[in-house]
Design a binder for these strands. Structure first.
Length: 603
DNA sequence: GGGAGAGACGTTTTT
DNA sequence: CGTCTCTCCC
């Protein structure tokens, strides 16, 4: 991608404004920009990689699309989904089903690669969408996921949109991770351009957001294409390439064939080891990492991949305890506790009484059903009279307005209002901070974030802005110095000379599926999990001349049953609180090229 | 609105 | 296995 951009700029003399480079993540976008700058090609520094979401948002804002629809670009925080889900009511199915519907709506209802995006596929879907949009409109907010459906509708409905003719060259990275709505939106943006897509169907691992490998597989069938296959695996040791080839060969409909080994990389070292318990597994991994570091391996060259937090945490804590610099990518968000969420909501409401989502969250907080019924009554009044939520509640509180069965809600409102008054009366910013966020172990992470971004800030509005950015768009350091502990999903795009994959057990890799899952879905998910494992093992890098690459695949025989259940790992059987596990079938699949498994031995 | 009891759920993840 | 969610009833 980088080299193509360089060629367009340098050889073909294309204006950088005519080139659109789209990436899946913010990190990839920053990465691309950094690489382009380092190329020292004239104009390359002016080209920024963009995520599809940021591009969508700027197109929608530029064209006042949301304003015309009566929508407000106030994004919902993750935790603010709770009252929304409660208010939507269970005639749409249980909470789980409602979440799934929100996700499908965010994919513009194209759940499958073969489905055309843009319209609900059933009256039930449509009814759900109507209710969802009504709630969001009334609460003057939107879901992050709505950006794509809105972009798609805008581009489809406006054949004359300037954006459809803005670019002469489109470059799209990680194409296999895009769902149909995203693919089709990009198709509109590039309808008069040369399009270059980059991706690997064997690394498609985002079906939960309705991205399927068939998207990239069908590309060349639908568009005249000049294909460039990259067959040689330049990164991995030869043993790993062989393992990966036999593994992925079991998947159907693949675009490419086997990867070619690069003999110069050397065979590498692969270890497969079973442990009696998950605890022993964690200890062995941590011990091996400690000895590697002892031997002079820089911590940043070691990654530990765990598909569940429950496998990641003990290793992370053990390494930390040993004084080894370690970073967990499962790290908690500052808004993980209800207490922190409440502080954040109070701040939002203090800055804007009309922040209806914050107010709705605060009104329902702590109640099993979020006070759905009384809230619905108040909302009905707001809807009919066109007053604001804050005004309606103030009138109720003052007794000017009477709505039956809303007593508990009004009591709660008065508490909130009283707290806002106290905060509004604080003497100065320090006093305000003390009042707003008193010391509390439950809000410790939020306090830390406040400390981090407090510099130069002397009012609540700026504090909120800085906090919001710090929480929703955390800085990703370009250079890490630590051992990294992360999920297989997060590891995509990384490579490292030392890779540990822990918890390689059946029921996790591949994952357990619900009893209702259809045979086709089962097969599709099995193949996706196989790709996930494939992504994991191919993170190993031969870093010659020093290192030929090390991969450890480990799995426990038993683990604490409650942990297995709470992290959706299907045990073979459970006895006295202990879950018994079987090795991942993927280990059997790579067996022809992998070493024989060891038991309880040092790695 | 609250309590009791039955039943479902829990994960990975991007913007 | 432990907790949350849902339904039913008062």
């Amino acid at each position: 991608m980088k080299r193509r951009v360089a060629r367009l700029l340098e050889v073909e003399q294309i204006d950088s404004a005519q080139i659109l480079a789209v990436t899946f993540t913010r990190v990839a976008a920053e990465d691309l920009h950094r690489e382009l700058v380092s190329l020292e090609v004239p104009g390359a520094g002016g080209l920024h990689g963009r995520t599809l979401h940021s591009l969508a948002m700027s197109i929608l804002m530029r064209n006042h699309v949301l304003a015309v629809l009566g929508r407000t670009p106030r994004p919902l925080n993750e935790y603010e989904l709770e009252p929304l889900l409660a208010d939507l009511g269970n005639h749409h199915g249980n909470k789980h089903a409602r979440k799934r519907l929100i996700r499908a709506y965010g994919a513009a209802w194209a759940r499958l690669q073969t489905q055309e995006p843009g319209f609900a596929r059933s009256p039930a879907d449509q009814a759900f969408a109507d209710e969802l949009v009504e709630w969001l409109t009334l609460h003057e907010a939107m879901l992050m996921d709505e950006v794509i459906p809105h972009l798609f509708q805008y581009l489809r409905g406006n054949p004359g949109a300037p954006e459809r003719a803005e670019y002469s060259h489109l470059l799209i990275d990680e194409y296999q991770d895009l769902n149909r709505a995203e693919q089709d939106s990009l198709q509109f943006l590039g309808e008069n351009s040369s399009i270059c897509i980059i991706g690997d169907d064997d690394q498609s691992i985002y079906s939960f957001r309705h991205a399927h490998p068939d998207g990239i597989r069908h590309w060349a069938v639908l568009h005249p294409t000049d294909e460039h296959a990259i067959a040689e695996c330049r990164r991995c040791p030869t043993t790993v390439v062989r393992m990966a080839n036999t593994l992925i060969a079991r998947n159907a409909g693949r675009l490419g064939g086997a990867m070619t080994e690069r003999a110069a990389n050397g065979p590498g070292e692969v270890v497969v080891c079973q442990f009696g318990t998950a605890e022993q597994e964690a200890t062995a991994v941590a011990t091996k990492i400690a000895s590697l570091i002892e031997a002079g391996v820089p911590p940043r060259e070691i990654i530990v991949l765990a598909q569940r937090r429950t496998f990641a945490s003990p290793i992370f804590h053990r390494l930390r305890a040993d004084g080894i610099p370690t970073k967990s990518y499962y790290a908690e968000s500052a808004l993980d506790t209800v207490e922190a969420q409440e502080r954040f909501a109070i701040l939002k409401l203090l800055l804007n009484n009309e922040d209806r989502v914050a107010l709705r969250w605060l009104l329902g907080r702590g109640h099993p059903n979020w006070h759905t019924n009384p809230y619905r009554r108040v909302l009905e009044h707001v809807r009919q009279t066109g007053t604001s939520l804050w005004e309606a509640l103030t009138s109720l509180s003052d007794g000017i307005l009477v709505i039956p069965y809303t007593g508990a809600l009004v009591d709660r409102f008065e508490e909130i209002k009283a707290e806002l008054e106290v905060l509004g009366a604080s003497a100065d910013f320090d006093d305000f901070l003390q009042q707003w966020l008193p010391d509390n172990p439950e809000t410790e992470l939020l306090s830390e974030t406040v400390t981090l971004c407090r510099e130069g800030i002397d009012n609540p509005a700026d504090l909120f802005g800085a906090l919001y950015d710090a929480i929703s768009q955390p800085e990703v350091p370009l250079e890490v110095a630590e051992v990294r502990v992360m999920s297989l999903h997060k590891s995509k795009g990384l490579s490292s000379p030392y890779v540990f994959i822990v918890g390689c057990v059946e029921g996790l890799l591949p994952a357990q599926l619900g009893p209702e899952t259809s045979p086709e879905d089962r097969l599709a998910k099995l193949q996706e999990d196989r790709r996930l494992f494939y992504v994991g093992i191919t993170r190993v890098k031969s870093d010659l001349p020093n290192r030929t690459g090390y991969l450890a695949l480990t799995y426990p025989q038993t683990m604490v049953a409650s942990e297995a259940f709470s992290s959706q790992i299907a045990p073979v059987r459970v006895r006295r609180g202990i879950a018994y596990l079987q090795p991942s079938r993927f280990l059997a699949e790579i067996a022809p090229h992998a070493p024989a498994p060891q038991f309880n031995s040092p790695l």
